[in-house]
Each structure stands twice: as structure tokens, then as C-alpha cells.
Amino acid sequence: MKITLKIWRQKNNATKGSFKTYQLDHVSPDMSFLEMLDVLNGDLISKGEESVAFDHDCREGICGACSLYINGRPHGPQQTTTCQLHMRSFQDGDSIVIEPWRAKAFPVIRDLVVDRAAFDRIQQSGGYVSVNTGGVPDGNEIPIPKKVADEAMDAAACIGCGACVAACKNASAMLFVSAKVSQLALLPQGKPERKERVERMVAQMDSEGFGACTNTGACEAECPKGISLTNIARMNREYFAASLSSYEIVSKGGGD
């Protein structure tokens, strides 16, 4: 296969980027999309040009490192991660435009690599159950209906790749945040902190500069792990209920 690539090149966050066009003449349909980029990079290095930087790691669709906005869609034409996309999804002679995720909260580091630390900071703001190691009850002391466990698992399947933000016209992170909020709101283990959790995670999400949700459903349509919009509705419920009912108690400290 012959492929024409139009790739966003940007030295670093301080300099302006632009598209560069490359030609690849011997692309095998069995190559993964990232392997095609490996081949391109090998060619570039042989010609003395610097390789195209892109994020990737596990290359089996689970780590969430790979990104790439391919021909106007996050992770390309199929509902998988970029690393699971294969060149047989394209035609001989195709032109492919590759851009980084574009969002204010995901600044470009270099070429196609963006900084998704905002996602980590949102998780740090409350995406956990406050239990220390040790001293926890037996796993079977907390019975959880199968349906609830399955639904929590559906939400927990999020890989944190950021395709939802990339796909959303508002660069909203609602699907990502709501997946974690949902997982822990559904499970009994998450219930004690559910109000504070959703309030803190939403506040962090807003302060990172993500947009608001306008229920377009683009995130769900592009999510490689099929995370559902139901989670966003659940987070809305959780958030409004928390806003209306939560209050703070100032601890007096002391004791003995």
C-alpha cells in the first residue's frame, strides 16, 4: 500500500507547530497503525530527520497511552485504541491526517505527544476509597449484587486515554470523570465518601479547563472501551444531590 501522511510536527510547547507531509510506499495491511509510524520513523532517521514523537506503550489496547486524532477521529476510523487499529482499515493511496489531542487541558509536549496529567490530578482529588493497607474486612463480608458489580466494572473499564475529551466539541472530561465517580458510587465501598468525592472531582475537572457537557454523545461514540453516557447522568445526580445535602463539620480535635 502507498500512504500519504500529513502529520502535526511541533518541537515543544513553546513553539508553533505545523503539518508536514510524508510518503510511505511499502505499507503492509497487516501492520498496526503504530507499526506504520515506526516504519516512517525508521525512514526519517535514515534520512537524518528527527522521528515523530507519539505516546504508546502496551500496544494491546489497555494502557491508554496511545492517542492520535486520525482523519478527524480520535483513535481513527474504528472504535478501538490506535494501537489496535490496523492498516487494513485504510485503502491503497489513502491520505491520512494525524493530529494530537487538542484541548486546553492537554497541552502538546512534542509532535503528537500531549500532557494528560490533568486526568491524574482529577483522580488525585478524590478518585479513591480512603482505606489503608491492612485491617480491612474479608472480601466476602461485603456482598455486592452481580448486576451492581458488573455495572461498576463497565465504568471501571476506562483506560484514561482521553479520546472522550478529544472527541467532544467542548473538550469536556465528563465521561472520564463520571466513569470513576460511577464505579465508586455504585459499590458499597465507595458510599461513605460519595458526596465529597464527586464535589472534589468536579471542582478539579472545572479548574483544569475542560469544557461542559452538552450531551452530544460524541465521547460515548468514540470511547474505545464503550463507557456509557449513563455514567454522566449518574454523576450529575450524584453532584446535585451532594451539592444540596453535603455540609462540613469542623473537627475540634483533642481526644486524650
Partner: peptide, 19 residues
Amino acid sequence: IDQCVAQGVPFAREYGGLL
């Protein structure tokens, strides 16, 4: 297993709610 359950790891469950 106990630790992970307490953290909210959604292990597979039987219909009765047990692991």
C-alpha cells in the same frame, strides 16, 4: 483480595453477591 475489595476493585461476583 480483601484489600483490593475494600479499595473498590470490581471483582466478578456470583448472583448471591459473593466473590
